[in-house]
């Protein structure tokens, strides 16, 4: 350990303690992120309890095929992120780690692409509040409320994924430069936790938005 590149900040006893402390800090950050999404989940729950039929109607206007494909894309991206952490822990070789990380980035971009295509379809169908809203069926106002929540929740989720893609891209670059080794891979694991958290949020958005009622 003495000759390794692992840097030890003065407040820590050893690199293991430093690593565990940073990972713990990441979990605390993720708990605050849960509060951010939790606020939106709460708004959703209140209005769905008030207007169950309008929410079911709004849900029928979402594309379940694209939604489920995107779920699979995100799950596989999480697998590559987990494999990246595994690789960083077990091997000092640069290329396998960089490949796992770039696969994660690629699948993240694919998710955003499919999500963007869905937004585009909503725009064409007149289902985007303010920009192009032409829905005039029963409970039009309440259905519009569903779409406001849909765009807010998937939008904030997409923003998180966008940030994640930036972070993992940076990790890929640093991995190629040989920055991460089995004794210094903390940033890979921290970013991994963030990536998996964003995945979990989507896993709940799928039933809440796409699977309300037939």
């Amino acid at each position: 350990m003495a000759e390794s590149a692992a840097h030890l900040d003065m407040q820590f006893e050893n690199t293991a303690q430093q690593h565990d402390t940073r990972i713990f800090g990441m979990w605390v950050f993720l708990a605050t992120e849960l509060m951010l999404f939790g606020g939106m989940f709460t708004i959703y729950t209140v209005y769905r309890a008030f207007y169950p039929n309008a929410f079911a109607e709004g849900s029928r206007h979402l594309d379940l095929t694209l939604g489920s494909i995107n779920t699979a894309v995100l799950i596989v991206s999480s697998l590559f992120m987990a494999l990246a952490v595994h690789t960083a822990r077990t091997s000092a070789r640069r290329l396998p780690l960089a490949l796992c990380l770039s696969a994660t980035v690629g699948l993240g971009i694919l998710f955003l692409g499919i999500k963007g295509y869905e937004y585009y379809l909503h725009y064409l169908n007149g289902e985007v509040p303010v920009l192009n809203w032409t829905y005039a069926g029963a409970q039009a106002g309440q259905v519009q409320l569903f779409f406001w929540l849909y765009f807010a929740m998937t939008g904030v989720h997409a923003l998180h994924l966008f940030i994640g893609i930036g972070l993992v891209s940076l990790l890929t670059l640093l991995a190629l430069l040989g920055r991460y080794k089995p004794d210094s891979y903390t940033p890979v694991e921290m970013t991994g936790l963030y990536w998996h958290f964003v995945d979990i949020i989507w896993i709940f958005l799928l039933p809440l938005l796409y699977l309300i009622a037939k």
């Binding site: 713990f24 979990w27 605390v28 993720l30 708990a31 849960l34 509060m35 939790g38 606020g39 989940f41 709460t42 729950t45």
Partner: peptide
């Protein structure tokens, strides 16, 4: 941290 985070979310809901 996770249990408390979920508990807070439960309280909010």
């Amino acid at each position: 941290v996770i249990i408390v985070g979920l508990l807070w979310l439960g309280l909010l809901l």
